[in-house]
Design a protein around this nucleic acid. Structure first.
Lengths: 270, 270
DNA sequence: TATAATTTCTCATATGATGGGACACGCGTC
DNA sequence: GACGCGTGTCCCATCATATGAGAAATTATA
């Protein structure tokens, strides 16, 4: 019942197991004891114990006062090193803040990885219901505005590559369920210049997103505004989209992506 | 020259090696090729290759377009899960923002782990030189204001435990270099109610910090304000300290740490 | 194109992870 | 206080598993 990555031919048992441990601890919202870890992963106590001790030495896990295990702060360190390379995040932040101030809704910054989107930042308006998303978490492309925004502006060959891998999990009744439907949606998105997720990921939640384009006019990320459907109404979409476009234009400038010189501005920024 | 954790008796070679790979990629600011990884870690090509493939399958590393390796976003995911358990961070953020607005200098939120402090959040004023610190990074306790702030308000037995482990690395000419000196400094800190780092970590950088106390009046974290010495002058310290105290009081409240009921307020909040 | 420097893959070998099981602890029950 | 149960810790003989030499394939460099 764990993640299906069947084509992975290279194997190092110890590593797979260690990551399974980390996974487990990451999923659980409460620290786990040795016994629970061993049982959940079908490892024998001594094995699980050894792993946990080694992981602890590396500060990948740490023990609570009562001896239970949870994820360690080393991971936090690594995580921050990992996104550091994408300085996109730092640069984008002020623009996202402005966006949130303007729209009074939650803004997300996401990257595309395989057929999933990964949220690398989230800004929430001061007074609002907190969103469930966690920075670092991921969602399938097909049911998110950010995902569709990036796909729609990727060159055909790259998007085709990704589309092949979409699994079309159903999240709500409105989730796009077929490749054809997604293709049509992407064309619509491209024409419109922004992507919409109309309760396709989560009941009652509406999002709207536009891609951040690099110097070659290729999407490197996407910014979205999300809020409860009753506030993010169909009428408001164009206005929000405008704020979004301003925002990503700002980000692109800050990243040093020239407005692509002369004429020929893409549909998005036009 | 690697990390000295000699007493760690439990060993899983594969894990140690895998983490060494991650470490290496984390240190390097530019992606590395298989050959470089293998050479740096004295692993044989095939071994390094296998590891990298497995790590890639787990998305702990990813490949750039030219085939080189760097840290993967899965680590970012894990890191955020790890920090999630300390919801301190989320709760503290608004208070830190206010603090930054008031002082116009950079604020940090840090935790204590072993004899080091780990920065779990950083807020920078809009117009300012960017600080070099990275969220997730760590520093020795003895040369940071946050470290001294926490140590000074820890119960003697706990702080003694930590003091034993301090290595007294020299960072600048002003870095505290002996256990005795540190002890005196901690007493001073305790009396004063706030800790000061006067260019002890970095030339030209002055910091001031106070601990965040939990319901049992124990430090769980510390908040600091840092800036160039010419702006963060000796005269300004008390005023900044006041803002800091307000800030941590706010955080404590938000965390549900009651103002400890009746009388007996600690020196810090008094 | 030739040549060098990569990365990828295969496979026999012995190293090193494995898990059975013994021990020690804390805790509630009898 | 003795017993049982559920913990976590530790040791060590066994063999499954990771290992690295080297060949093949790919990509960069001259």
């Amino acid at each position: 019942m764990r993640d299906a990555t069947p084509q992975g031919t290279y194997k190092v048992q110890a590593l797979d197991r260690a990551f399974a441990v980390l996974d487990l601890l990451g999923e659980s919202d409460t620290p786990l004891g040795l016994a629970q870890v061993a049982a959940s992963l079908q490892l024998h106590k001594s094995t699980a114990h050894r792993f946990l001790m080694v992981l602890e030495r590396h500060r990948m896990v740490e023990r609570t006062s009562n001896g239970k295990f949870r994820l360690g702060l080393r991971l936090f360190d690594f995580g921050n090193r990992a996104i550091e390379q994408y300085d996109l995040r730092d640069r984008a932040q002020p623009h996202l803040r402005r966006l949130v101030a303007e729209t009074e809704e939650t803004a997300h910054l996401a990257l595309l990885e395989a057929a999933r989107v990964i949220y690398i930042d989230k800004i929430e308006p001061t007074r609002s219901v907190r969103m469930i998303t966690r920075v670092g978490a991921s969602n399938p492309v097909h049911c998110t505005a950010v995902g569709k925004a990036m796909l729609a502006f990727l060159p055909p060959e790259r998007s085709a590559e990704i589309l092949k891998r979409v699994r079309f999990e159903r999240m709500t009744t409105r989730t796009i369920a077929t490749l054809d439907a997604l293709r049509t949606e992407l064309e619509k998105t491209h024409r419109r210049g922004y992507a919409v997720d109309d309760e396709e990921l989560e009941e009652g939640l509406r999002c709207i997103a536009v891609p951040v384009l690099d110097a070659q006019r290729l999407p490197v990320a996407a910014v979205s505004v999300s809020g409860p459907s009753f506030r993010v109404t169909a009428q408001k979409l164009p206005s929000i989209a405008n704020h979004l476009l301003q925002c990503v234009r700002g980000i692109s400038m800050d990243m040093g992506y020239m407005p692509s010189g002369r004429g020929a501005r893409s549909a998005v920024l036009a």
